[in-house]
Design a protein around this nucleic acid. Structure first.
Length: 507
RNA sequence: GGUGGAUUCGUCUAACGGUUAGGACGCAUGCCUCUCACGCAUGUAAUACGGGUUCGAUUCCCGUAUCCACUACCA
């Protein structure tokens, strides 16, 4: 049997910012496509015009660009299976709706939303299906002349799928195995609405996946219950032979408590649930994003990849290329995963550690500028070395400022608690001696300075901790930071002496 | 309510009939040390419950419980 080229798709609805769960679904599709040398298609499912949000489509594209997830075809990417925006495919859907109608696999229904609501109110658990359809206003139950008259009059209608009852429908899921649902519990789904001349999700989805030659549908678990309906639709069209294989991914759940992950959880616990910052044009409310929060895209990708999938061994840190080669649908878990955002922070820490100092320094520049530092006054080498000294102490690039500010501004004040502990009445005298020692040095390198100063402290019999910490207090402003002489080497002799002088005056 | 799915340390997960049930995050302790961190080391902690099947069940089957999803002219 000739193997078809693997083609998968990510098909969001442009109703707002892309949820992190959607990002993960897209990532898995991307990994699967790359691994099989297949194509990843980006399709926009905008069949509900009332929920369209301007800017959402651009937001989604920008999110993937940032994350390094690339598409081969689709909206904004081109390709030969277009158009890729469902609202631009009206004529295509109409043709297939007509086909289903002609084949007797679907029928026209005139029941208004109000009538249906009334029905649901009067009959508990009302479902529009084989057991009830003959009592409704549709082309199956009404005389042909009546149907023709209503159609001719331009009455709004809907096309429903005619589900044959009492048949076990099998869905072979790549992650969950054989899932069986009896067709009697399915309702006659609306496939098309005459009001806006657009199909609903189910019809558009099947038609597009077929026409776009999709081989694998990798999507969230929320679609599992409707998968049998989709199988029935493929069958109704006679497309069973090329029906894609399904894989339903587990959902992302709240870190605490029950339920699926929502924006509120992020706000409450302090982590983003969207890739990029988003400002809703309608409500005016804004949501934080991973990018703006200071996450590295590689870290987000790695973190997300492991939420619902694992390589089968203990490896956790993986580049995109490694993920591509290791990814495997059969190693996807079946149960929903609570969103472990603390682990996401750890991933970011690890990626900052691994990123070359110069690259981190480049990311640090805007942060410095934001704190009023004249970045141009420092050369890249200085910045890189500063970063090298402190990056191990942070989880985010912006935290570098807190750890490294003394490399750019002299202390304005001195931590009270440290002063109390490390600055006694004879400290100014000792600092004076220290300044003499430092002045006498021609080589101010870390290693040499350390030898000289430590030698002096030992020789004088001074208390190592007290002298060094007073020194640190004077230069840094508090008792923290990297190796003391690494700091002074970067600051230089002049600045170091000036800071000690200032501290002696101020404290 | 109905239907489907799921269930291993607090969390993410490994073990696809035989292990002292492994790793990671978090947390705790220790080491390192001029400080704070980082790092390193150690520790903490789990097979939801009840029945089967089997020489042997985390693993297979059946119940129960719990959680999740779906149940729209939304996707």
């Amino acid at each position: 049997m000739a193997e078809r080229k693997v083609r998968v798709r990510f098909a969001p609805s442009p109703t707002g910012p892309l949820h992190i769960g959607g990002v993960r679904t897209a990532l898995y599709n991307y990994l699967f496509a790359r691994q099989h040398n297949g194509d990843l298609v980006f399709r926009i499912e905008d069949t509900d015009s009332s929920r369209f949000v301007p800017g959402a489509e651009e937001y989604i594209i920008e999110s993937f660009r940032w994350l390094g997830i690339t598409f081969d075809e689709g909206v904004s990417f081109g390709g030969s299976h277009g158009p890729y925006r469902q609202s631009e495919r009206r004529d295509i859907y109409k043709r297939y709706v007509k086909e289903l109608l002609e084949k007797g696999k679907a029928y026209v229904a005139f029941d208004t939303p109000a009538e249906l609501e009334e029905k649901r109110k009067e009959i508990h658990n009302f479902q529009y299906d084989a057991s009830t359809r003959m009592g409704m206003r549709n082309s199956l139950a009404m005389p042909q002349e009546e149907v023709s008259r209503l159609m001719a009059a331009g009455t709004q209608y809907v096309v429903r799928f005619k589900v044959e009852p009492d048949e076990d429908v099998h869905v072979n899921d790549l992650i969950r195995g054989d899932v069986v649902i009896n067709s009697s519990i399915l309702d006659d789904k609306v496939l098309y609405k005459s009001a806006d001349e657009l199909p609903t999700y189910h019809l558009a989805n099947i038609v597009d996946d077929h026409l776009m030659e999709i081989t694998h549908v990798i999507r969230g678990e929320e679609w599992l219950p409707s998968a049998p309906l989709h199988v029935l639709l493929y069958r109704a069209f006679g497309w069973e032979g090329t029906m894609p294989q399904f894989a339903h991914l587990p959902l992302l759940l709240k870190p605490e408590g029950n339920g699926k992950l929502s924006k509120r959880d992020g706000d409450r616990l302090g982590f983003p649930v969207f890739p990029l910052e988003w400002h809703d044009p309608k409500t005016g409310e804004s949501s934080s994003g991973y990018r703006e929060a200071g996450y590295l895209p590689e870290a987000v990708v790695n973190f997300l990849a492991l939420l619902g999938w694992n390589p089968g061994n203990d490896q956790e840190l993986m580049s995109m290329d490694e993920l591509v080669s290791l990814f495997n649908l059969s190693h996807c878990s079946k149960a929903g995963a609570k969103f472990d955002y603390k682990k996401g922070i750890w991933f970011n820490h690890e990626y900052i550690l691994r990123k070359p100092d110069a690259e981190v320094a480049a990311l640090f520049k805007p942060v410095l500028a934001g704190h009023g530092v004249d970045v141009a006054a420092y050369n890249d080498d200085y910045l890189t070395r500063v970063v090298g000294l402190v990056k191990g102490r942070v989880n985010f690039v912006k935290e570098l400022w807190e750890q490294a500010r003394f490399f750019f501004v002299a202390p304005e004040s001195y931590a009270e608690k440290d002063v109390k502990k490390r600055w006694s009445e004879d400290t100014p005298r000792i600092m004076g001696e220290l300044m003499d020692v430092l002045r006498g040095m021609t080589d101010f390198s870390s290693k040499h300075a350390e030898e000289v100063v430590i030698g002096w402290i030992t020789e004088k019999g001074y208390h190592m901790g007290n002298v060094m910490n007073a020194f640190r207090l004077a230069v840094v402003g508090e008792c923290k930071g990297p190796h003391m002489f690494d700091i002074t080497e970067l600051l230089g002799k002049e600045e170091t002496l000036a800071r000690i002088e200032k501290a002696v005056q101020a404290i």
